[in-house]
Amino acid sequence: MRNFKHLITLALLGLLTACVIPSDESQPITGSELQRPPTDAEVEQYNALVSPEERIVCRRETPVGTNIPKRICRLVRDVQETSEFHREQLRRVLR
């Protein structure tokens, strides 16, 4: 029984250490860090600097097949084009 407890403790420790990623703050920022999604404030600052069509809008959406919401950012221009495309499709169907 005691051996079993040791085994479980060892296994848990092993799992924990496996999750540790060595970090070195002196190293330059890697590509993956640069690719992090922009924060809300960063998005807002970007939007203030560009023309209205170039702005992006981010919101949390729950994709089909999962209950975990995901933050999705899109260009306002793309949103408009997609909306227009869908409206056109609807008009065709209703004709």
Binding site: N47, P52, R55, R59, Q80, S83
Partner: peptide, 13 residues
């Protein structure tokens, strides 16, 4: 944040 400081009203989203 994306429609009020411009004349254009953006529909959807």
């Amino acid at each position: 944040e994306f429609k009020s400081d411009d004349d254009k009203i953006i529909a959807g989203w």
